[in-house]
Design a protein around this nucleic acid. Structure first.
Lengths: 250, 250
DNA sequence: CGGACTCTTGAAAACAGTCAAGGAAGGTGG
DNA sequence: CCACCTTCCTTGACTGTTTTCAAGAGTCCG
């Protein structure tokens, strides 16, 4: 896979010689020109030969799979700073489309692999990224497997709130660039259930609408409690957002 | 994480000089003595400091998470040859328990990382393993998000059938070492629904019971069709078990 | 002002969940 | 070897949440 003699290698070496040593993964993309995608435009499709790796520099992408009869499952939303296509198989195992206008940087798999090869200090970062992705996937399995509609929607709101305001800090305002249908396909619900659940959260004063695609979190404690993770607001304020402890006899 | 200047590197060079070159990942574990686990015994718990990486050499493990009020989600079953704890965070993000009597080999994270560090040809293998895990996780999200109880059970039976008889080949006999409750917690259903669904598959002649924990696949084509992936039996016989193509206009 | 979306709301239906009881299997001790 | 007990699995009746189907309201844009 990574093993063949690389022509690109010399190119990279030249770059490396002229530049200070790379120290973060996204610097690998620094020299690449940006490309733009319109709303709804696809970046690649499930089943395409996986030739590139991308970094999102602006906007939001949705990652999804389609099964036989047209059912769609959104497995994630990607924001600026996120990378796509890292789970390198020969073929993309999902599709990627722009939710908002998006800007990405593109690197061939080969160029990306060479860059990693030549900058060993990036490897742990890449590895950590994959592990985070895996952890997120598992949390999503928990959500889809055992959470009620309300718990799913609340979990989603918290997820976006966290993503918008840096890892630990939770802001009061949530921007939801995606449609209700996108939310439904991410949460394993129907559009109607999502809509009804949001309506109920509003009427109970947990969140306050701010247009149709933004909300204020009126009662953060309540919202967190409704996520069904056994988290309390105090936990959150103590900044203990690290992986949850088992609630199980050791 | 791995970023500090590594003393380990020189140590490795020494080892590399003395040992034949490693060429597959599980050889890394070759020299380690086996440990045994009884049925139901835990290997590690969600929240523990993640100090080891394991290889299963015999038996079946279940990997699961528990949320607040005791709901359990099984995120995977591991068979001989599988590795556990690769998604290295500082803390295990899930628990692992023996479904059957299990034998494992244990390596400290550090030893494992050094081995990888010193045998660069293993890196793509490790990477590929993580990618497979990710692909499996996404398939599971599709299952949990959009499949009916029957589709879930059939998908599970096919998964186990494949696992038992090598990647491509599908055997006629399915051994299910885990309890109905385990299946339910893996499929996001209740034990009653799993039981009823299996009963219905039997009465329709799709599968034939062979004790309570083994089945014959009487109608493989039918079973495959019931998975809800849009697969047909012909597809399968052509050996095209690679990642599914998009059924979507490009 | 229309027209096309997207979102919300209502009523009815369906699927899976809950509660409850009975059966099969396996293990232990007499 | 059998009786007993426990555990796991199956089955039935009922409930409830979410889906489905259908219609109406809100928003965006020409």
């Amino acid at each position: 896979m990574l093993s063949t003699v690389n022509h690109a290698h010399s190119a990279f070496a030249a770059v490396a010689g002229m530049k200070p040593q790379l120290s973060t993964l996204d610097e690998v993309f620094a020299s690449v020109p940006r490309e733009s995608l319109e709303v709804g435009e696809g970046l690649f499709w499930q089943g395409d030969r996986a030739q590139h790796v991308f970094e999102v520099t602006e906007g939001v992408l949705r990652i999804f799979k389609i099964i036989g009869d047209g059912r769609r499952v959104i497995t994630g939303f990607l924001y600026a700073g996120d990378m796509v296509g890292l789970s390198l198989k020969d073929i993309y195992i999902y599709s990627a489309e722009a939710v908002t206008p998006v800007k990405v940087r593109r690197l061939t798999r080969k160029a990306f692999q060479d860059a990693i090869e030549n900058a060993p200090e990036l490897r742990p970062q890449l590895f950590a990224l994959l592990c985070d992705e895996m952890a997120a996937a598992q949390d999503q399995m928990v959500l889809l497997s055992r959470k009620s509609a309300e718990e799913r929607v609340c979990s989603f709101l918290m997820l976006i709130a966290r993503r918008m305001h840096g890892a630990q800090q939770i802001g009061r305002i949530i921007q939801l660039p995606m449609s209700r249908q996108d939310m439904a396909d991410y949460l394993g619900l129907t559009i109607e259930t999502v809509s009804r659940t949001i309506t109920r959260l509003i009427s109970r004063g947990v969140i306050t609408p701010n247009g149709r695609h933004a909300f204020d979190i009126a009662k953060p404690g309540k919202l967190l409690a409704l996520c069904g993770d056994g988290d309390s607001y105090e936990d959150l304020c103590e900044g203990s957002l690290k992986t949850r402890q088992a609630v199980w006899p050791h």
